[in-house]
Nucleic acid binder design. Structure first.
Length: 500
RNA sequence: GCACAGGUAGCAAAGCCCGGUUACGCGAUGGACUGCAAAUCCAUUUUACAGGGGUUCGAAUCCCCUCCUGUGCUCCA
């Protein structure tokens, strides 16, 4: 099956065929760095990171461009409030972006162009649009004339010019544009604002033009995939279509338009005004970044996702289980049967090799199913369920009494490759080997070593109390240990403890 | 108002494009194991598809109508 992706413009899944066979040119709208990154950003860039990884795993050579809109009204406002240069505001938020996205396992794009580094290209593009009479100069800047190409209106959203005009009436600002739908290409500088020289005096680019200019710079007149948040369809992406296609005359500028669904919190859009706003760093206080990634991949990228405690807790449990099985496979490979001696084969049962061949066949077919799921417009939820199913079988085999001692390490080795390929390389929801081992065998957790003596001595006292059937004292000690962040488990093999 | 998404078992979420087979997970219930828990394992939770029409041998899936929710039309991933 070939990769199919949903194209917002055509409103259907379409087979993906890049313009240049084997190569993919992909542009995703980046952030406007006026504040730290929030969960909506995380969802968006994780979704497109998955696309990026999957394209590469499928053998494509991907050129991934993601911009930073490092000059805009809000950045200027915050810079003025803080009394710093606007680039200081932009830079600190870009730093935050890299920090949190790296933690979330988002692989870097190939290029991160910034508006402030592409003024020349932007100005050239505006000049060309004026020349072709798609844009006009007014007292307060340069505007794109939407009525110069009315057939392009509503390409992504189905909006009609009249309807948008009606919806926008009463909110007309005091700008000097000719028609309500016209949008700014160049904004003349107001006093005290950062400004660049241009044929139309000092000013700065409008919001939409930078993406057109930067994609033109990196890819030329057209490219394969353009992504971004659902809210960017209008006006931002429709404006890009106007600018790019009217400038170059080449259409369509974009092969497939992709938009990710929104993050909601308790059923409502996450927003600062509703007070349900989470920055990524806020979320990191409670959940491991990899758990957050797992949670955000556990829904289809185009559907809205409601971030709730249940969603995150589910992800935490599933991700932990996966890590545990991965860790077990690593340890079994490294130590073979030494760690857990295998009981003898039950008589008359399937032989080890037959059993293994059969199980490996099932696991491999699950990998194919996961690949099919991703080929079907990146169905990460379904892919994750196949990964979990495969991991479950791996766990059953590793713990099975039907497998010969000599086969354990080789099966473990097969399992590690399988998990690392699909859960690690493609989905990015795997921890490091060291962490995975500690999840499986808490004795290997370095954090445990620090408190081991104290916990062990408390456990010894609890053990005495238990033998004396002094349950009250025993439970008090367990509570005290719990306060140290430790879970105590009484198992048939004795008392065990682990970090919460 | 117009536009675009959604409405699937107790919750959550795939499946819908390409009608006919199980999603997966959580929770719940019963059991094993426990001093009690926790964890784990086994089993059960086999008229789920917003409502109403239609097409079809057969519809969650295709067509029509209605209702409800969210979002966009202003900066937003």
């Amino acid at each position: 099956m070939t990769l199919h992706l949903y194209d917002t413009r055509r409103k259907e899944k379409v087979p993906f065929h890049p313009a240049i066979p084997g190569k993919v040119q992909m542009y995703v709208c980046g952030i406007t760095p006026y504040s730290p990154s929030h969960l909506g950003h995380a969802r968006c860039y994780i979704a497109f990171d998955l696309l990026h990884r999957w394209l590469e795993a499928s053998g494509y050579d991907v050129d991934y461009v993601q911009n930073f809109t490092d000059i805009d009204d809000k950045i200027i406002k915050i810079a003025n409030e803080d009394g710093v240069h606007f680039l200081e505001v932009a830079n600190r938020n870009i730093e935050d972006y890299y920090l949190v996205m790296d933690a979330l396992g988002v692989e870097r794009a190939d290029h991160y162009p910034r508006v402030t580094e592409h003024l020349e290209g932007i100005i050239n593009m505006i000049e060309m649009l004026i020349e072709k009479e798609h844009a006009y100069v007014s007292s307060d800047g340069v505007w794109f004339s939407v009525s110069s190409a009315p057939e392009k209106f509503g390409t992504l959203t189905g909006n009609s010019i009249d309807a948008v005009q009606a919806g926008g009436s009463g909110r007309l600002d005091k700008s000097d544009k000719r028609e309500h739908n016209d949008f700014a290409l160049w904004k003349s500088a107001k006093p005290g604002e950062p400004a660049w020289d241009s044929p139309w005096g000092k000013g700065r680019p409008g919001w939409h033009i930078e993406c057109s200019a930067m994609s033109l710079h990196h890819f030329g007149e057209s490219f394969d995939i353009h992504g971004g948040g659902f809210d960017l369809r209008f006006p931002h992406h429709e404006a890009e279509i106007f600018q790019s296609e009217c400038c170059t005359g080449k259409e369509p500028v974009v092969g497939i338009w992709m938009h990710n669904g929104f993050v909601r919190v308790d059923g409502e859009k996450m927003s600062k005004s509703l007070g349900n706003f989470w920055t990524v760093k806020d979320a990191f206080q409670i959940y491991d970044p990899i758990v957050l990634r797992y949670a955000l991949l556990n829904a289809h990228y185009r559907n809205p996702i409601d971030v709730s405690e249940q969603l995150l807790d589910d992800a935490k449990g599933n991700q932990r289980k996966l890590s545990e099985i991965y860790g077990q496979a690593i340890i079994f490979k490294e130590e073979g049967e030494a760690l857990v001696p295998l009981p003898p084969l039950p008589s008359g049962d399937t032989t080890s090799s037959e059993y293994l061949v059969q199980r490996i066949g099932v696991i491999e077919s699950l990998a194919e199913e996961a690949a099919r799921a991703l080929d079907d417009d990146l169905n990460s939820r379904l892919a994750l369920s196949k990964v979990q199913a495969g991991a479950k079988i791996i766990s059953e085999v590793l713990n099975s009494d039907k497998i010969d001692e000599g086969d354990t390490a080789s099966f473990a080795s097969f399992s590690i490759d399988w998990i690392e390929e699909i859960a690690g390389l493609i989905l990015g929801v795997l921890p490091t080997k060291e962490i995975a081992k500690a999840v499986f065998d808490p004795r290997l957790d370095p954090r445990r070593v620090a408190i081991r003596d104290e916990v062990e001595s408390l456990l010894a006292r609890r053990s005495i109390a238990r033998h004396a059937k002094d349950w009250k004292a025993a439970d008090e000690i367990r509570d005290r240990i719990a306060e140290m962040g430790v879970d105590v488990q009484d198992t048939p093999d004795g008392v065990e403890w682990s970090l919460k």
